[in-house]
């Protein structure tokens, strides 16, 4: 009597498995690349956390060629939305940049009260002129600035935000938001949509 019950339990379990999302299937567990696909899935679900980041006293070069201090640039009193990109990146950066482009569209006239910041993680290639051209391609408004600088400065900025992964080819999509100088940063790992960013921004500003 026990054996058929076991079988039934196994069948039920199998049925349950079949109804689970794809990543739980045994076949995939044996797939050496299953984790990649799971990553791809998990990227859709952008995860939010908060953190305090100490901004290093480094100089960056803005897309207009002007040398600026990172802390001074971020502490201009406005809410900040920040990401790390490079202009010859073909996969995740264009997507992140498009999300920023849509965010500024969605913000409309409000956008001028926000500071959008994109810092290059390939600073030797991304000269101010190349960044300015990239900004034009995505119709960046005056509130959205791109930054480059020495390799050391770029790495220091990446380390400060805990996104440095050793090489530009290893980077992951992360967006940072902060309501005002001295407040905590909201960190969104994964691909956040423009709507999600706008919502997060409004929440932050409302709570300020």
């Amino acid at each position: 009597m026990r054996a058929p019950r076991k079988i039934a339990a196994a069948l039920a379990a199998a049925g349950l498995l079949a109804s689970l999302p794809a990543q739980a299937r045994a076949e995939e567990a044996a797939d050496p690349h299953a984790h990649h696909h799971q990553m791809m899935m998990s990227m859709k679900r952008a995860t939010r956390s908060t953190a305090d980041y100490a901004l290093p006293a480094i100089d960056l070069v803005r897309d207009d060629g002007k040398t600026v201090s990172l802390p001074a640039e971020l502490d201009d009193g406005k809410p900040v939305v920040l990401n790390f990109i490079f202009t010859t990146c073909t996969t995740i950066c264009p997507m992140m940049t498009q999300v920023f482009a849509r965010l500024q569209e969605r913000l409309g006239p409000e956008r001028d009260r926000v500071h959008m910041v994109s810092i290059s993680i390939d600073p030797e290639q991304d000269t101010p002129a190349r960044l300015a051209a990239y900004a034009r391609k995505f119709h960046a408004g005056p509130q959205w600035r791109y930054y480059t600088g020495s390799t050391e400065a770029s790495v220091a900025a990446q380390r400060a935000f805990d996104v440095y992964r050793g090489d530009k080819m290893d980077h992951t999509p992360v967006t940072f938001l902060r309501a005002a100088p001295g407040r905590r940063w909201v960190r969104i790992d994964g691909f956040a949509s423009a709507d999600e960013l706008a919502e997060a921004l409004h929440e932050l500003v409302a709570a300020r």
Partner: peptide, 18 residues
């Protein structure tokens, strides 16, 4: 080709596998 590349053999960037 922008993501899958000219060879069609794909690419990867961080955890993103094409």
């Amino acid at each position: 080709a922008t993501c899958h590349r000219r060879s069609g053999l794909g690419s990867w960037e961080g955890q993103t596998v094409i």
